[in-house]
Amino acid sequence: MGTNEQSATWFDGVRAVSPILLGVVPFGLIFGVTSVSSGVPLVAAWASSFVIFAGASQIAIVEVLGGGGAPIVAIVTAVIINSRMLMYSADIGRYTTSEPLRTKFGIAYILTDQAYLVTANRFPDPRNARGFVAFYLAAGLTMWTGWQISTTTGFLVGAAIPEAWSLEFAIPLTFMALLTLAVKNKPQLIAAVVGGGVAVAALAMPYHLGLLVGTASGVVAGMLVESRLK
């Protein structure tokens, strides 16, 4: 267990997540730019990169509040989007039992889809906990740094972009892209169709509540189709 081995693992973590970072940087720029054009309070939106550090939920908050939705709808939507990280936390917990509390807090704070997925792919065996933690921290910190730089740049550049470019449309486009990546089988397709359909049908509901009703309907529909296919 030499220092060389540890630093090699750190380097591996940075290298593994770097190609993924190329896709995250435009996402961060879009978040900054669209926040400026959507008219939400800018310092709060910018601070969400540090406080929340979860891109899709940060964009959803801007979308809901920028469109006149209620704060509670923004909160519930963001938490629903981030709930998937429960699964990552459950898996990571198997590797971190002997880490000090401080490290556990750090590991939890920088948890992202990308850092977790590259690390779990590389260290599938919980007996190699040291390698997992070093690799994960390197990947996670790389993601964190990339996210802060790209979103901050987006906020700085955003003010210079003319309104005629309609850049706020990049938000639904981003969610559209995430949607095509999230649908991998038939029950998930049904969940998307029902979730979107019900959200449109429930447009008349106040405070963007249709968003939550649509999401709940989609999840139930997906689970029903899954159990029927079995």
């Binding site: 979308e63 939507t77 989007i81 917990g93 639904p172 998307a192 249709g210 989609g218 997906g222």
Partner: peptide, 28 residues
Amino acid sequence: GRIAVPESLERALRYIAPAVLAALVLPA
């Protein structure tokens, strides 16, 4: 890491991303 995610929650989590993303995109 001693407690596993309950199976029913894990099933529901699989449909959250498609459902919430579609509910955000389609009305917009």
